[in-house]
Design a protein around this nucleic acid. Structure first.
Length: 592
DNA sequence: AGTGTGACTTGCCCAGAACGGA
DNA sequence: TCCGTTCTGGGCAAGTCACACT
């Protein structure tokens, strides 16, 4: 295995690291270089040791006084059937237990867990009464909230113990935090949007389902007493510690490291370096795709128009999906005729395209944009003789597109455009918006720049349930502060008058005190107003996703350094851990 | 070219912790 | 100290993309 030292960056020492003491008494030095260990042969590590996952707690049967009723009569269920019924009863207040597909899928899977006797008796979900069970669980969660401090403390300590024991691993020379060391408990699958599999039973994962990955020379994790792992392998070409196959989609789930880990941090850094390389050649690529709009070949025109959308609108690539397996959502390459409308003229604009489709997580993308005439004419051409449910780009898919992109630049794929456009937008917006005002005003500018990116990437959120109320509260505070301010101003005026009348030391002092008070209240008022603006503008926009996944953290770090903003105002503790590499290397003059 | 699989990133939501004002 | 509000991390679903195989 070859180890290589690559890329020497500004300040490579990881200042935020700490000495790590392990069970075995070994202490690893805190000094390591971010670029210290990268392997050139595709291997990800040479030593990996961990304790394996934590399993979901076993099912606890209901007390005898909590009953399930079928057709009005109480009925004691077998443990497996009862367990599944509790999943449903815990969701009774949710809208989706009223949805046909959810109920149908649930009932079908529930019946699979029943004894043959139960199966012959329970034939209609509408005759099932889960009310008592539901009440019982509500009471339980209420009781949990009412627990004494000591009880709560005890639970906290137990969680902490579990974290210490299972939450860390050793990868090469570092003790690293594991991202998700708990196995997902059984329950009913929900899915997002109109999912055809909603309500299906997510089965319990046993040790026999788990593949463990660790190094040969490590202490292997022990399965719980009386059980066995499915397999123990030693594959250092991958980064995961454990995996299992989930039963709803048949996909594999993994236990991996926390974003603060070396392996994730390095990958993140690489991602932004690829985006920066795109910055250097994006002009050339844009010229090329504009040229391709005129190609004789339909497939090349389609590729060029799709790439234009990906670049201009930050659309996702849009892989094909198996029909009926997931919610019907699309990205760029999988757009259908029904998802766009063409308007040769709209208001005072020409060649307007209206997009309306469901993207990732069934979030609606709605946008009207004027495009260049050539793009418009091409779109008209692509639409000819097609039905609404036909593919807009029938000669294109993500594989073709990415192969093309790879030829234009090493490592270039569709999603790099999202990263590039997000980061460059942040940098531009920060330049444009940052005022030479107070710190809160600067932070508002930062949030606005962040918001511009979130809007570009269509990162939405449901307005918080308490939004209206909290907005009102804030307004009340502002009004109060305003009253305070005018009162303080009056006092200042009076003091000044007194001072004018008799110019003694005491009066002079009073003026100063009152002046300070006015100033302080003005600042407080300003802060509140900024807060209100920020919150209002943020009602339906989610900033987190772009901050965590699309914005080169070095831009933010540099901005903080340049304007003497404490980094804590921009990144919380977790974020600072994730972006430790960037905090370490970016100086105030960093350019994306 | 098409299909399936595996590994990894991205994305929204929500419970519970932390905070801060009365 | 209590209570309402805000923040944060975890949970887990849903994407992207490479690669093997045919």
């Amino acid at each position: 295995m070859t180890k290589c030292m690559l890329l020497v960056v500004g300040s490579p020492l990881m200042t935020s690291s700490v000495s790590v003491h392990l069970d075995n008494g070994v202490c690893f030095s805190s000094l390591f270089r971010w670029e210290e260990e990268r392997y050139t042969d595709g291997s990800k590590w040479r030593f990996l040791e961990h304790k394996g996952p934590v399993f979901a707690p076993p099912y606890e049967p209901l007390p005898d006084n909590v009953k399930f009723y079928y057709d009005g009569k109480p009925m004691k269920l077998s443990a497996p059937a009862e367990e599944v019924s509790t999943f449903f009863s815990k969701m009774l207040d949710h809208e989706y237990t009223t949805k046909d597909i959810f109920r149908k899928n649930f009932f079908k899977d529930w019946r699979k867990e029943m004894t043959s006797e139960e199966k012959s008796k329970i034939t209609d979900l509408n005759k099932c009464n889960f009310k008592e069970m539901s009440e019982y669980f509500k009471a339980q969660s209420e009781a949990r909230k009412q627990m004494s401090k000591e009880e709560k403390q005890k639970i906290k300590e137990e969680n902490e113990r579990l974290l210490q024991e299972y939450g860390f691993c050793i990868m090469d020379n570092h003790k690293e935090r594991i991202g998700n060391f708990r196995i997902e408990p059984p329950g009913l699958f929900r899915g997002r949007g109109d999912h055809p599999k909603m309500g299906m039973l997510k089965r319990r994962i046993r040790p026999e389902d788990i593949i463990i990955n660790c190094s040969k020379d490590s202490k292997q994790p022990k399965p719980p007493p009386g059980t066995k792992w499915k397999e123990v392998r030693h594959d250092n070409k991958v980064t995961w510690l454990a995996s299992w196959t989930e039963n709803i989609q048949g996909s594999i789930k993994y236990i991996m490291l926390n974003p603060s880990s070396r392996i994730k941090g390095e990958k993140d850094w690489q991602k932004y370096e690829t985006a920066r390389r795109l910055k250097k050649c994006v002009d050339r690529i844009r010229t090329q795709y504009r040229d391709d709009w005129k190609s004789k070949e339909m497939r090349i025109r389609q590729r060029a128009v799709a790439l234009y959308f990906i670049d201009k609108l930050a659309l996702r690539a849009g892989n094909e999906k198996e029909e009926g397996e997931t919610a019907d959502t699309v990205g760029c390459c999988s757009l259908r005729v029904e998802h766009i409308k063409l308007y040769p003229k709209m208001d005072d604009q020409e060649y307007v395209v209206e997009f309306d489709f469901l993207g990732k997580d069934s979030i609606r993308y709605y946008n009207k944009i004027p495009v260049e005439k050539r793009v418009f004419k091409n779109l008209q051409l692509f639409l000819e003789n097609k039905q609404p449910e036909d593919d807009l780009f029938d000669r294109l898919n993500t594989s073709i597109l990415n192969k093309h992109l790879q030829e234009l630049m090493d490592g270039l794929t569709a999603k790099v455009f999202r990263t590039y456009n997000a980061s460059i937008t942040l940098q531009q917006q920060l330049k444009e918006l940052t005022s030479d005002d107070s710190v809160p005003a600067k932070i508002l500018s930062y949030n606005r720049a962040n918001r511009a990116v979130a809007i570009l990437c269509n990162h939405q959120r449901a307005p918080p349930k308490t939004f209206e109320k909290s907005m009102q509260n804030l307004q009340t505070k502002i009004d109060e502060k305003q009253n305070q301010l005018s009162a303080a101003r009056k006092q200042l005026k009076a003091a000044k008058a007194d001072h004018k009348a008799s110019r003694d030391e005491k009066n002079k002092k009073t003026v100063e005190v009152k002046r300070k008070a006015v100033q302080r209240i003005e600042e407080q008022l300003m802060k509140l107003q900024v807060q209100a603006t920020d919150r209002e503008e943020n009602k339906q926009i989610a900033l987190g996703t772009s901050k965590l996944n699309y914005l080169d953290p070095r831009i933010s770090v540099a901005w903080c350094k340049k304007f003497s903003i404490p980094i804590e105002k921009i990144y919380n503790k977790t974020q600072r851990e994730k972006f430790a590499w960037a905090i370490d290397m970016a100086e105030k003059d960093y350019e994306f």
